[in-house]
């Protein structure tokens, strides 16, 4: 092998080694790299329900109720759902049907939230287009 080919092999080994190390690392981390748990995985006991954790899903349409700063709503992944109780200001993207992520813990089957974050999806369009799409669906 020439010196240049030696260096090529070296660079290839570097890349392969780095990929291997990171793959193993990510495998080891597993579920810990997920930012939140879905209602179904919570029901299956995958979430650490003994302490505070994050629950993510869609806000059920028609479930949102509010008294002053205290709001209650249901979050679903279309299989299971939880009722959330939260006191505080909701983010601008929060609305029924929207994906949200909430931090808190389960108390007697109800999720008492300390934080509610709204998730945005990858669709960007002006309001007129959104309305037109909605009408087309109905």
């Amino acid at each position: 092998m020439t010196k240049r080919q030696n260096r090529m092999v070296l660079v290839a080994l570097l890349i392969a080694g780095a990929i291997l190390a990171v793959t193993l690392l990510l495998q080891a981390l597993g579920n810990n790299s997920n930012y939140f748990y879905s209602p179904t995985s919570v029901k299956q006991g995958k979430a650490p329900t003994d302490r505070s954790f994050r629950l993510g899903g869609l806000v059920v349409v028609g479930s949102f109720k509010r008294e002053d700063l205290k709001s209650t709503f249901d979050v679903t992944d279309n299989n299971n759902k939880f009722t959330i109780e939260y006191t505080g200001i909701l983010p601008d993207l929060f609305r029924e049907g929207q994906g949200i992520i909430t931090t808190g813990s389960l108390v007697n089957g109800r999720f008492i939230a300390t934080e509610v974050l709204a998730k945005h999806d990858e669709n960007y369009m002006p309001p007129e287009v959104a309305d037109a799409l909605k009408q087309a669906q109905e």
């Binding site: 790299s33 930012y35 200001i89 909701l90 983010p91 601008d92 993207l93 929060f94 934080e115 509610v116 974050l117 709204a118 998730k119 945005h120």
Partner: peptide, 12 residues
């Protein structure tokens, strides 16, 4: 901050 409701999150 205005959209999600937080400046930072430790997501992936």
């Amino acid at each position: 901050k205005p959209m999600w409701g937080t400046w930072w999150a430790w997501d992936a």
